[in-house]
Design a protein around this nucleic acid. Structure first.
Lengths: 150, 150
DNA sequence: TGGATATCGTTAGCATAGCTAACTATAATT
DNA sequence: AATTATAGTTAGCTATGCTAACGATATCCA
């Protein structure tokens, strides 16, 4: 039935719209906590990947961050200047450069993540147990959508 | 009871962490659709507020976008150059400048929003009716959290 | 083997977007 | 009228995204 399909499309689009908007506003809020870390957002995001997923090359990190290589090259240069990561030339392939978070980088990341998450979590105190459960379930659903995204 | 409180805090932090991460990844995906509009993200976001919430001043728009006035001043300059908004001096208070989306701006926004949302919405087709309902409810909860955010 | 081709990363140059400090113009206060 | 407050802009810094062009290294294949 055509009318029903149309209603379903509309429902999906309204939901998509609201989720999109909520995500934007959530990140704007949370981002402000990062100011205490004295590192720009793209750097913190890249460092986070290195700390929590382990060493990788510039190209891999660029791809993980959905950014072009020259952009990642510069982000890494900044992180290196701040002594948060170090480069190690690949012994097998001289073109490749493995990136490693330094102890300083790892420490900063863990502390920062903790601060950001704690801040957001404190805002969730207003929610009931049921509301928390719904949010919890919804994140799982969203993760599934993101994984199979084409 | 202290043990229970601790468990609750931990649950909140884990949830906050997962929501944070999901929001980041969602926006990275959706953002790419905006390329077709030939306007940068901050401009599209500001224009969106003007189109969907109506005319307002630079300061109000800056505050709505959680950005400082000089930043919004420049974003609006770009939108004006592209003839997507126009400025109208406030008759009551000569310091103020009301911003209005032009017909061109309104049209672009509606089309762009449509494209972005349609793209995201198409990814939601894999979900069941129940999963949609959970996401729907969760967005309402998140909106509530954002509204009362301190 | 050695020249062509492919890959990894960097450099250069452009536009956008965030900030603070300092400025202009207008309004409000005293 | 003089002072103070408010709205917006300008100037100048840093950061982040892109493409195009380049150097260095690896790989292919005739």
């Amino acid at each position: 039935m055509q009318g029903q399909k149309h209603r379903q499309n509309k429902a999906r689009e309204e939901l998509a719209d609201r989720m999109h908007s909520a995500a934007i506003h959530l990140l704007r809020r949370v981002r402000k906590q990062d100011a205490t870390m004295a590192q720009a957002p793209a750097r913190l995001s890249a460092l986070s990947v290195l700390v929590f997923a382990g060493a990788m090359t510039i190209g891999e990190l660029a791809s993980a961050e959905q950014v072009k290589p020259p952009t990642m090259s510069r982000i890494v240069a900044g992180l290196e200047r701040a002594r948060l990561v170090k480069r190690v030339r690949d012994a097998m392939d001289g073109r490749r450069v493995q990136l490693l978070a330094t102890p300083k980088g790892t420490k900063l990341m863990r502390q920062g993540r903790r601060r950001r998450i704690t801040y957001f979590a404190s805002q969730l105190k207003m929610l009931t147990r049921d509301e928390m459960a719904i949010l919890d379930e919804s994140v799982g659903i969203l993760q599934k959508v993101l994984q199979s995204w084409t």
